[in-house]
Amino acid sequence: MKLPGNGSLMTPPSLTKPGPAATDMAGRRPLWREDFSVHAAEDNYVLRRQFTKFLTLTSAGMLAGNIWIFLRSLFDWPHRQYPQTTVARSSEIAAGGVKLFRYPTENDPCILVRTRAGKLVAYSQKCTHLSCAVYYSAANNRLECPCHEGYFAIETGRVLQGPPPRPLPRIELEQRGEEIVAVGIPAGEHGA
């Protein structure tokens, strides 16, 4: 078998010579070597040049990832259409009260809160850390994730404490008479 770069600076001599078990006492190669002519040590040997090539290809892959993120930021989310869904009636929720709903799909749990100041706010209920369900703590007036003690501000959804790397995605609401309608998610706040 001819190795790539054979005889070059980095090829160990042990790979270019047959080992002691390669021939029998008469100097012939045993029959099983002819049938199974796989030289695992030689096949698994990776030159540093090959390893550098592999790392460079990995680097190209990561560049492709960055390009993908850039292209998505250019073309995707500002044009996304969200449904308009009635999520509650205004009289249902008292100050400090909460209602859970799903928006924009059945797989996206959200939480609607009327703050102590009387303002209605809604966020995705999935924590931006590991997607545990956040709940409203009326005593502390904030959204809390029970898994790793991540806290979010009730007014803006920004992270107050803990491991979550991003704010909670905010749900845009409109009040139409008595009905509270979810109309969208601001661009770039749709979560993972």
Partner: peptide, 26 residues
């Protein structure tokens, strides 16, 4: 990616340029 998902879309261009420079160095 974290920055982009957090709504800071400006970071995507800078990230792509720096990543390109690192790839060229590699």
């Amino acid at each position: 990616l974290e920055s982009y998902l957090g709504g800071h879309r400006d970071a995507a261009l800078a990230g792509m340029i720096v990543s390109g420079i690192l790839f060229l160095a590699c």
